[in-house]
Computed example of a mutant assay.
Amino acid sequence: MRKSVAAIMVAGAAVFAGPAFAADLPSYPPIIEVPELPPVDKDLGGAFYLRGSAAWNIHWTKDVDAYDCVCDEVSFPVEDWGYGYSFGGGFGYETGTGLRFDATVDYLQNEGSSITKTGFGAGVDGDYSLKLRSTIALANVYYDFSLGDGFGGYGHHKGYSAGGGAFAYVGAGAGVAFNKVSVDGPAGNPIPGGDNVSLAAAGMVGVGYDFGAFTTDVGYRGLYISEVTNDQPAPAGFSSDNNFVHEVRGTVRYKF
């Protein structure tokens, strides 16, 4: 009898305690709240790049210093501009905020700049044409800005980014030019060639399109070379200061 009463009491306690204990257990499966992560900004971000360029150019300088028959230096006005081309490559980094930097090396060829000597007699009078071969090494900085509506890959009012689309740019560079100069003169008056190293600088402006991994652009580069000379003594020396090379230039960049 006692055992029966004890069993009934235990069963009754279980009936009343069971719901209270179950109320304290967590629901299944448990709900875990994960804080929302901020969206990833895919538009802005830096990238290294390789570049290759090709250009058509014209060369202009005001005059060429040469020598008369008694070896006095005389300035002769340039009558014809020179024409040529250039090509080269480089390595750089774009920050994703509009600024980018690169170092470039270009090979430049130009010929046709000419002067005319008169009044010095046979063998000296005539047309002299200059040929220029230069290796141009420059450190450059650019700023790219969107030509879109400020949305899409460029972000809202954030300027240029790596997201893609049409853009324009301005830039400047400074460095050195390794020049090799030859001169074609009248028959019977050969002029030896020579070379020199000179300061160089550049200004750039253009438009382009960013496809993502590849970017293309076309623009103008004004190249300044402080001195071009065949570095020969009188009477064979020819030199020109303040040389300007105007280029229409196309470029392809690969980002990685």
Rank of each mutant, 00 (worst) to 15 (best):
R2A: 15
S4W: 01
A7I: 12
V10C: 11
A11T: 13
G18N: 10
G18R: 11
P19L: 12
A20E: 08
D24T: 11
P30H: 05
P30K: 07
I32T: 08
E33R: 08
L37G: 00
D43A: 15
D43P: 00
L50S: 05
S53P: 00
I58W: 10
K62L: 02
D65N: 15
A66R: 06
Y67Q: 05
V70H: 07
D72N: 15
E73K: 13
P77H: 10
W81V: 08
G82H: 06
G84M: 01
F87P: 00
T95M: 10
G96R: 09
T97F: 15
A103V: 14
D106F: 06
E111L: 07
I115K: 04
K117V: 15
T118G: 13
F120G: 02
G121C: 08
G121I: 08
A122K: 07
G123E: 09
V124I: 15
D125M: 12
R133L: 01
T135K: 11
V141D: 02
Y142P: 05
Y143D: 00
L147K: 12
K158Y: 05
Y160L: 06
A162F: 04
G164T: 06
G165I: 08
F167N: 02
V170A: 03
A172N: 01
G173N: 07
G173R: 04
A174S: 01
A177T: 04
F178M: 13
F178A: 11
V181L: 14
G188A: 06
P190K: 01
L199Y: 14
A201C: 03
A201P: 02
V207Y: 07
V207R: 04
G208T: 07
Y209W: 04
Y209G: 00
F211H: 05
T215G: 02
T216P: 08
V218L: 12
Y220G: 05
R221T: 10
G222H: 03
G222F: 03
I225F: 03
S226T: 11
S226V: 06
D231W: 06
P233L: 08
G237I: 03
G237V: 03
S240L: 05
H246I: 00
G250I: 10
